[in-house]
Amino acid sequence: MIARAARRRTATPPPAGGGPVPARPLPWLLPVLLFVGLFYLWPIVDALRLAFTDASLLDRDAAFSTEAIGAMLGSPALGTVLRNTAIFTLGSVVGQILLGLAIALLVVRGERNGLRGMLVMRTLVLAAWVIPGIANGIIWQMLFSEAPFGAINSALRLAGLPPVAWLSDPGNAMMSAIIATVWQGTAYSMILLYAALRSIDDTLYEAAAVDAATPWERFRFITLPELRGALLVNAILIVIMTLNTFDVIISLTGGGPGRATEVLALFTYNTVFYNFDLAGGSVLSILLMAISLALAALVAAFLPRAGRR
């Protein structure tokens, strides 16, 4: 009896991924659907609804209107904001990936050669990442400060260089915001790429060493191709994270001078919480989401090739 049951069980293996599928899956899925619906889908749907109203933060009894959409998409500020967002995102993402990769390569290389202090190095870089964005903005505001005590300008003065108007010059402010963001976000890329680097088979490098490969050839023929997948995943994640960044900027420059560092996320925030324009903010947040999705989809389009290799 038992033997027969056992035989039957082995004869028809359960579908991959666990036990048999229940006849009516809905009751089982309901908790998850409720959770996802309540906490993720509902806010999006609500934003979409609000976008088609004239709601303000002070008066939530809103009537249907497409005025907000027209006003926001036609807003003269939007062009500047989108341009800022593009520059900020591109600069931050490229900076984070390059710097993260460089540090990860250094750490892995140091570990391979038995150098001490690599754990400390990793921890230090990671420490920047756990600092809240607001605090990070304040820290960099002090560093960039153009008052006599400003750390970076003091250092420049010691080196006999003229001070730089890091935050007050509209031309420099964006660069400063990018530096602050890169400084904080690099740890994320570093850890991700570090893990990927560590998983590369050491004997590949040994084979390359015996084959007299130069450091550049080792990077070009082994490291880079092996990192491809991790780089793409990393890029998607930090593109989205950076697009949504406003905490660093709000505490560092507040979006200024003028609109020089006002990115879409901050513009949205300001629309809602300074202008009390809930409908306009909803329009902008939908726009932000659309841009995030589009960029993510664009990067993700490269992923399958990385998986297939």
């Binding site: 088979d201 004997t203 590949l204 040994e206 084979a207 390359a208 015996v210 084959d211 023929f221 082994i222 191709p225 092996e226 290799r309």
Partner: peptide, 13 residues
Amino acid sequence: VAMVFQNYALYPH
């Protein structure tokens, strides 16, 4: 010198 490794160590890509 040339070396043949136990796990072959071919360049995967």
